[in-house]
Design a binder for these strands. Structure first.
Lengths: 346, 346
DNA sequence: TTGAAAGCGCTAACAA
DNA sequence: TTGTTAGCGCTTTCAA
């Protein structure tokens, strides 16, 4: 790295003190206009750029937020990160992104390295983290936001919607459409409270209609296309088959549709499939996916605003759960209706 | 932030000097075993964590790499970032991720902010950047790697494959399959040399077969599902229609397939569609996508290794272009073959 | 409003 | 191998 101009150089060139130069940059309204102007001229002339490390060391602020996600390889997180990043950028913060691939131990390691590097705050996904994660936060007094989560015990620190409610409504819809044999591909429950909420919500909705969610029809699979494929493979390995498969994410649902296509299982005639998230793809696959629309970008934006207000000590009140909506498309069959067109030509 | 223990505290508790404590952490082999052990005990006892800002200021290294992408909302970049990040993590570096949404001006702003914060190196995408980008790099002597790019004038700084070659081979394949009316949806050429290479490669391949790439069949659209949809809408607005559409990315191709479905255009019977990248989805849509397989993760990993070797002054030799392969699936129709089954049941 | 000066916590050169 | 010490470049009192 070449020798960059320092603020000292700027001050010297402008003929002011180091202090005035510093103030010109950080609190320009507290210097006389002509002082400010001379400093600005010197800055321009030298092509001066602040040294972030020095600034961080002296001010004890890094203007950086760490965001730790399970994976970037799911559009909901990619889109959410994008809006998080752009919002933070507008507020003068940068983002250190990391992903742990659903490995709790990796998340702890990441967080440790990030704390060492120095960040002003952290955005995590969900509430289910290793104790060490919360310990680190407490130990360093680091503000944090749990995105994609609601938790009454942490008012003001969660930004998300109720997975329980969403799952309950989706399962309710499937039952209303006449399905009684319903399987669930919710993700992997261990270390993921959102998956557990999906299972609970689905179970509750079925129970409310006098149905039981069969344990052997809760098929825990990763949040990947392959996960959805594999769920279908498992469920159709016997003749004791469901008529509907509720997937935890659209990604799984699309994988499931692909597997059905490969196996010659007609969707939704032989198997209805629903997803969750309403990614753009949900509206492009054949058949188009009945799913839960979730406020992906909004979660990114609100998480950004909240972590900054936490850092800067501005109160923002408690968070309230965001809303989700069911999006009805063709992948869910209505068994109550007389079948006129179940065999469409071509 | 609570008061964290400093290295001074550690040294005091261990009964050694500040220097020995520092060395115990950074070059443990240069201290006596018992010194090392006392320091480690003190570190554990105090829960000491390095202050990154101080370390960066004193050592003039941040152990952070900035990676600026066009968007995170395309699986190829998401996957590539993931492998970049994990490789860098293994090498002791962290990643500052940013995206500019194909806005050259935004890229300059991002880079400026990133330089200010301090990073040891930069990973960019492609070769086509505002002059200001290269100026900043030169001014601060920042090592950089151009990923998803090949450029003979920058040996050792590019990691990617030849878009020209890939486009040429794909177009060659389409022609070989008997298509003579070929349209191209390459992305948006302005500020993107990869798009221009695609156009050139396609043009050259057609020319080699005595065909001409019609200017009005080069449909520049964004790299989104919607971009692909809109290309189909435009091309099918008249009766003068192509029999094949070569898309610049699988995302566009999937969008194009969706638009065809909505318009009742049969793929590939009425329109063949090809993509590029071979994202997982390419193998899941109906019909499955003929595309170019590109080494997505490898680009991330190699970019990581290269930027670190550049930073640490290790020579790694010149880069050579990575390989791509055509992946044949059903979305490209072979017009040379007798049509036996063009109207499949259901 | 300004300048002077004391650190922020660490690294690295140097001397012992 | 260890201890001492001079910065790294900036922010932020404090006094003027």
């Amino acid at each position: 790295m070449k020798d960059r101009a320092t603020l000292q150089d700027v001050a010297r060139l402008a003929g002011v003190s180091l202090g005035s130069a510093s103030r010109s940059l950080s609190v320009p309204r507290e210097v006389r206009p002509d002082t400010l102007e001379r400093v600005q001229r010197a800055v321009a002339q030298l092509g001066y750029v602040r040294n972030g490390a020095a600034q961080a060391l002296a001010s004890r602020r890094t203007k950086t937020i760490a965001a730790i996600y399970p994976t970037l390889d799911n559009p909901i997180f990619a889109v959410s990160i994008q809006s998080l990043q752009q919002t933070l950028w507008g507020l003068g913060y940068q983002v250190l992104v990391a992903s742990h691939d659903y490995e709790p131990a990796r998340e702890v390691d990441l967080l440790r390295a990030i704390v060492e590097r120095g960040v002003d705050g952290i955005v995590l996904v969900g509430t289910d983290h290793a104790d060490a994660v919360y310990d680190l936060q407490r130990q360093y007094g680091l503000p944090y936001v749990l995105s994609w989560a609601v938790d009454e015990t942490r008012p003001g620190q969660c930004v998300g919607f109720s997975y329980l409610d969403a799952a309950q409504r989706m399962a309710g819809l499937v039952v209303e459409r006449g399905h009684m044999r319903i399987a669930l591909c919710p993700g992997i429950a261990d270390g993921n409270e959102r998956v557990r909420a999906r299972i609970e919500g689905t179970r509750a909705a079925l129970k409310a209609h006098g149905l039981v969610l069969r344990e052997d029809w809760i098929v825990e699979r990763p949040f990947t296309f392959e996960g959805g494929r594999s769920a279908v493979a498992q469920l159709f390995g016997t003749t004791d088959r469901p008529t509907a498969l509720i997937c935890g994410t659209d990604i799984q649902a699309v994988g499931a549709i692909g597997e059905c296509r490969d196996r010659g299982i007609r969707v939704p005639d032989e198997l209805s499939i629903t997803g969750s998230d309403d990614i753009e793809l949900a509206n492009l696959v054949e058949p188009r996916l009945t799913t839960v629309h979730v406020p992906t970008s909004e979660i990114g934006r609100l998480s950004a605003e909240r972590i900054v207000s936490l850092i800067e000590g501005r109160a923002l009140g408690e968070t309230r759960p965001l809303q989700t909506t069911l999006t009805m498309r063709e992948s869910l069959k209505d068994l109550n209706r007389v079948e006129l067109n179940s065999q469409r030509p071509n």
